[in-house]
Amino acid sequence: MSKEHDHGMTIIVKTVTRLTVGLIFLYGIYIILHGHLTPGGGFAGGVIVALSFINLDLAFGGKVSAKIFSRGSTSVIEAFGGIMFLALALLGLRWGGFFDNFLHPDGEPGMLISAGIIPLENIAISLKVGAGLFAIFLTLITLQKFESEKK
């Protein structure tokens, strides 16, 4: 089990993953950045970005995805997302109140740069959700490896 996990799946899965994983990642970024215009937003986009890394981990084994994104860096990114969200909330105190939309009239409604702090909050939420889910996934996988090594 351990050896199998290190080497990943067959060459067909690896090739298809190499072709598609970038597109999945890009789609997640698109969903996050257009969250205030189209369906989607930070929650769905964050889970899609986490899914692209889960796809890498399942296809190529733990070592390849650990090179890009280790367990320590997931903790750092999740904490960064939480602090960014809270900092945006606290910055609103300067202009009116907690979670005040202090950037609001900044563009035509319907354009990409509009809606004040909502895109920034989408990015913060997506970092938090994606990194948290990927940390959960890595933890469950790593313990399985630990158990099979013990046997």
Partner: peptide
């Protein structure tokens, strides 16, 4: 419901961790 779905996934993961 949008927030509730993500919270549901996190609690499901916690239940799976307890089961493992």
């Amino acid at each position: 419901v949008l927030t509730s779905i993500v919270i549901g996934l996190a609690t499901t993961a916690f239940l799976i961790a307890l089961a493992v």
